Simulated scan of single mutants.
Amino acid sequence: MKLTAAQKALALAFTLGLMAGCSSTGDTMGEEDGMTTSGGETSGQESGSTVYGGEDGSGISSSEMTEEQRREAEERAMEAQEQAMREITTFYFDFDTAEIKPEARDVLVAHARFLQANPGQDVRIEGHADERGTKEYNLALGERRANAVQRFLVVNGAARGQTETVSYGEEKPAVMGSSESAWSQNRRVELVFE
């Protein structure tokens, strides 16, 4: 099974969130229900659990978090996930098409939100094609791909003045070769933040 970069980033973000949610220091909160841990200490289900607790007892108890703290933690998690998605800057296309793949859309929305929040940030959108077809056709196809990504970013919040498109056609392949594997990696748009 071949995973796209967006799927890998989403899986990474999910895994990190799951690990953070499941992490525990083994500290206990009390003896309310008389349950004993493997180390012989007692812990109580009603008392909550301490996460990232140190020797001095400083940590965050899940039973002591306010709704505002939970909301802030969720916002930080969403920001971290968007940051991880923005690290993906290459988007692949099917043969002879400029249609953005569904798995790329969430990542492009994250880029559009970033551009909207940072009006001084500019991005160059570089369109590419594989070696099949004439040089002129591939330049036009690369341009259609770059324009499709530009339109998507603008519709989702980026300013048109922040974007610039350029087509390289088949001139800057990511991978050399004349196989479907090489061609699929050369049919792409790259975002270059300036």
Rank of each mutant, 00 (worst) to 15 (best):
A182F: 00
P119D: 04
M19N: 09
G133S: 04
M176D: 12
S167H: 03
G39M: 07
D33G: 03
H111T: 11
G127I: 00
E170Q: 14
E67L: 06
G44Y: 02
S23P: 06
R70A: 13
G142E: 03
G26R: 05
H111A: 06
G59Y: 03
E190N: 11
N138H: 04
L18A: 15
S23W: 11
A159R: 04
R124N: 08
R86Y: 15
A11V: 08
S23G: 11
A110S: 15
G133L: 06
E31F: 06
S24C: 13
N156I: 01
L16Q: 09
V166G: 06
A5F: 13
H111C: 08
Q162H: 08
Q150G: 02
G34F: 14
D33W: 04
D96W: 09
A73L: 06
A146R: 07
E99D: 07
A77R: 14
S58T: 07
D106H: 11
F95E: 05
E87L: 03
D33P: 00
S43L: 13
L139I: 04
R76Y: 04
T37N: 15
I60F: 07
A117V: 02
R71S: 09
H128E: 06
D106W: 10
G157R: 06
R86K: 10
H111G: 15
E55N: 07
M1G: 15
T89V: 13
E32I: 09
S23L: 03
G17D: 10
S43E: 07
T90H: 04
L12G: 14
E190A: 12
R151C: 02
P102E: 01
V154L: 09
G57M: 02
E72K: 12
T90K: 08
D56Y: 02
F93C: 09
L141N: 01
S58V: 00
A84T: 12
M176N: 09
D96T: 13
Q150M: 06
G53I: 13
E164F: 08
T163W: 04
K135F: 12
T165E: 07
G21T: 03
E41P: 09
A98R: 02
S181Y: 12
T50M: 14
T50H: 11
L108F: 05
M35N: 14
H128A: 09
G161Q: 08
G133I: 06
K135M: 07
G169L: 00
M19S: 14
M85Y: 13
G40C: 07
N118Q: 15
A11Y: 12
E103W: 05
V189A: 01
N156A: 01
E31H: 13
E190S: 08
R188K: 01
Y168M: 00
G169F: 01
I88D: 02
T89C: 12
E74W: 14
M78V: 05
R70K: 11
G142T: 07
